[in-house]
Design a protein around this nucleic acid. Structure first.
Length: 105
DNA sequence: CGCCTGACCGAAT
DNA sequence: TATTCGGCCAGGC
């Protein structure tokens, strides 16, 4: 194998990303919760920052309160991708965040 | 095994 | 509303 085995938590995080519907968003904290580690929001950020697997909607994971949050390389691209999926972004935040937030169902 | 970092969170100021 | 601070967790060294 060219790389060390990912921990189960890491696998779960990536699995959650695949389930996020287009046009919806979740917070890092939500991903942590859905992956089974409440409070591991920072860890989720680390995993995503180092994740190599392409094709995952990393841009659909935002910070708490609907804030866009960070992004590797071009932070602006994240906002663009979100806008392309129908989100309205104002002053770094998703408009009507509560309604666009995915609860994992 | 211990210390540092970071695509974070939320309460307090 | 903006800024600061302590806490939390996995990964890299």
């Amino acid at each position: 194998m060219k790389r060390p085995s990912p921990t189960e938590f890491t696998r779960r995080v990536l699995h959650v990303l695949r389930r996020i519907p287009a046009g919806r968003v979740v917070t890092y904290g939500d991903v942590a919760r859905l992956a089974g580690r409440v409070g591991a929001a920072r860890a989720v950020g680390q995993i995503m920052a180092r994740a190599e697997e392409p094709g995952l909607p990393y841009h659909r994971v935002i910070a708490a309160g609907g804030r866009v949050g960070g992004f590797g390389g071009n932070p602006q691209m994240k906002a663009s991708l979100l806008a392309a999926e129908g989100h309205v972004i104002r002053r770094g935040r998703i408009a009507n965040f509560a309604a666009r937030r995915w609860d994992g169902s």
